[in-house]
């Protein structure tokens, strides 16, 4: 039972990071990013490829993963300069899918990514490292869990400070009325790109941890459904709230994994899986219809009624 709960908390932590990144895009800057899973994938794959194919040690791989995710954030952010929200939604989800296709079957790329079957074997050093710093008494999962949640806390504080700063105020201004901010002489494009880049970097880091958790990489793990899960978590906790991603993620994964306990006699495993997805869809609709600010969010902060 305990390892099971640890697993849930670990996943919740990873997705809290993802939601923190997305919250920066949507909650604070008003950019509708439906391709978030791409940053997740970039982080995981960069680390995995560098480590297994090019024998790059772990820490540099981690950093490279974040840089790669940041670059991806800039790429995805480029359309955002010109495009309005609805079209940005389509473009971001499309970029995410193109990326997944390239990872899977891209000429040249798929040799590196090992195509649909993916990559393994990068996580051992990571876990052995814990002995070196005297945390050998923790199981691998507990160790990862600790690292992930410390990261969530650090990122949370960082984002809190950033959003309170003048930089953060400009982001919020862009969310409310981009033209007004531009009229004040601010380079709106630069701020949007920075928001995209930072949120992507955070998601890339989450990707690295996720890869460590699973121990392998496969392109079809990184489907749009993950982006939708992160959106649900962010909306549930409350967009533009700092603790929202944490609260949303814990509740989401508790319920999600809770359904795994429904006895097979009542519904089969496959049916439970379908039910979970129906639940996510219904949750998204319900939040948006009845309580758009989520649990912890603030009605005034809602980037919705534009």
């Amino acid at each position: 039972m305990i390892p099971y709960i640890e697993g849930v908390i670990l996943t919740a932590g990873i997705f809290a990071l993802l939601a923190q990144g997305l919250n920066l895009h949507w909650g604070f800057t008003g950019l509708i990013n439906l391709g978030h899973v791409a940053f997740f994938a970039v982080g995981a794959y960069t680390m995995g490829i560098l480590n297994t194919q090019f024998e790059v040690p772990l820490l540099p791989s981690f950093l490279a993963a974040m840089v790669a995710a940041t670059l991806m954030g800039v790429i995805v952010g480029l359309p955002a300069i010109r495009l309005r929200t609805d079209y940005l939604a389509i473009v971001t989800i499309t970029i995410g899918e193109i990326f997944r296709l390239i990872l899977k079957s891209g000429p040249g790329v798929s040799e590196l990514t090992r195509g649909p079957r993916g990559i393994r074997g990068f996580s051992n050093d990571f876990y052995f490292f814990r002995m070196d710093i005297g945390l050998g008494f923790l199981s691998p999962t507990q160790y990862l869990l600790l690292i992930v949640w410390v990261t969530v806390a650090v990122v949370g504080v960082l984002l809190y400070l950033l959003i309170k700063s003048p930089w953060g105020r400009v982001l919020k201004g862009i969310r409310e009325d981009e033209d007004a901010v531009r009229a004040l002489g601010k380079n709106v494009t630069a701020y949007k790109m920075q928001s995209f880049a930072l949120g992507a970097a955070i998601a890339g880091l989450a990707g690295v941890f996720f890869a460590m958790d699973i121990g392998s990489l496969a392109p079809d793990t990184y489907l749009p459904i993950i982006t939708f899960q992160v959106w649900t978590i962010m909306m549930l906790g409350g967009s533009a709230s700092h603790s929202g991603p944490v609260v949303g993620s814990i509740i989401f994964w508790a319920i999600f994994n809770g359904t795994l306990f429904i006895p097979r006699e009542i519904i089969s495993g496959a049916e439970a899986a379908y039910l979970r997805q129906i639940g996510i869809g219904a949750l998204i609709m319900a939040i948006m219809i009845f309580r758009p600010q989520g649990i912890l969010g603030n009605r005034e902060e809602m980037a919705l009624d534009k």
Binding site: L34, F228, I278, I280, G281, A282, I284, A286, A303, K306
Partner: peptide, 21 residues
Amino acid sequence: GASTVNLLIISIGLALVLRYT
């Protein structure tokens, strides 16, 4: 008074409900 963005997000949820039903 829902904006087109609200409705877009609702449609994403609707898609999931419909598909998995």
